[in-house]
Amino acid sequence: MNKTRLEQLSNLLNAPVVPKVLSAAEWESEGGRKHPDIGDFIDFHNVCRIITGLNGRQLEVIEIVSSLTSIEKQLLAWAIKQNNSRSISDASELEKQARGLGEWIEESLVSGQWRAEIPDSIELRNRLLDGMIPFLLQSEHVEEKEPGYNELEKTIRTFISDDTLLIPLKEHEWLILTTDRVLSEIETDGEEVPDSEETKEILSSLAEGLYDLVTGEWGGECHVAAGEPFIPAESLVRLVGTLRETVFLGRKFHVGMHVHLPWLVHLERLLSGIPEQVRSRFVEEMMGRPDLFTDPETISTLDAFFSMDCNVSETAKKLYIHRNTLLYRLDKIKHEAGLDVRSF
């Protein structure tokens, strides 16, 4: 529920209305149903909580700090359900099919069936038998500024190819599958089919273009991951899992970057697998304190410095900072950590 609607509801009820996210387990522990649905409500210490949306295992809830009457609660639950069902019934046929596929992917991921084959009941299955290029798009738009399915689908089709599918996954997350023929349309160095390195370069440029397109049209932040060409019917769930992990790792280890590529986060995946406690202990043992390299500025500085092969001038240029500012930051790291990143 967006900010404006929350304010309207708060004025209507003359009580504070706060959005919250709860897990299904928390909902159940507070007296909710084991299989919660939109419109379900519970009373908890003179606070009424109503589910407004489902997002995988997470529940979007509004918390009304007031004792509502039974009729008020039922009316509110009814209105929320109507709003939800209307948006689904208004959807186009393609959107419904895409949502169906998205839900199946999500369920397979949640239940750990990463190698699940697309069942015949999924109507879009026949469109997933040829080679395609996958992109995962995660946006952070506020609800009122988020593009609708049709608008986004049309824009992306115009951008890449008419042979493109937009599949909503979770809220603010879409899988984009486009024909791999796009690759052969791009001139390569005399070869008909680009080699692996060229393919990766093209995919990176396409993902950058997609990022620019989405932010340029609707603003806000978004993250894009691109995968290598594959046949969706064979490994769609696993692919989505990989791309989602890539965005997670990219955001965690490459602060400030918006395009993330699975072939560039191998080491990050390995590091991420180390439990937090073990990592903190390692840092503490090596540096004497556990809180080093935690601020985004230090991380992005080091990231740029290493990616430019420790070249001070090039790094300063990349970061648009003065050379002396960079040297100051590197000296600060040396002073705090006792490590001179300029000489290994």
């Binding site: 009122e144 500024k145 951008f159 890449i160 796009v182 349309e185 791009i186 093209i202 440029s205 396409l206 950058e208 273009g209 990022y211 620019d212 932010t215 340029g216 049209e217 609707w218 603003g219 648009y320």
Partner: peptide
């Protein structure tokens, strides 16, 4: 303030001019 970039009638040129490769 609340108008999407595409409806602001502006054009942007940024440092990373990501031309569309295809």
């Amino acid at each position: 303030n609340d108008v999407a970039p595409k409806d602001r009638d502006i054009a942007m040129v940024f440092q990373s001019y990501a031309l569309y490769p295809h």
